[in-house]
Design a protein around this nucleic acid. Sequence first.
DNA 1: GTTGAGCGTT
Length: 111
Amino acid sequence: MDETIARTRDNIVKKQALTYEEIEAERPYGAVDRKLYVANLHFNMTESQLRAIFEPFGPVELVQLPLDLETGHCKGFGFVQFAKLEDAKAAQSLNGKVEIAGRTIKVGFSL
DNA sequence: GTTGAGCGTT
């Protein structure tokens, strides 16, 4: 009986681990529901600049600016992930309203 | 050292 319990426990552990990996596989870029896609950025925009723009809405968990490994510059778009969904929704209102380095940024939820 | 719609390397 003890062995059965131990085996069941192991199965539960493995099941949880598998489920976690499945989640990771389905969400390779993290919490997409709390992440905003920010486009029309100036090419020398940096993560700290981007963070500074969105932080007033709430805690920013993650800022990503995919870099072109050839030039080392950002591709002109990025991602801002908030700790709370409500903050992300509030920050979405910046779409078309904020101009940085002469360019009006686009803000929308990540795909 | 340039460009300009779009959804990402870890």
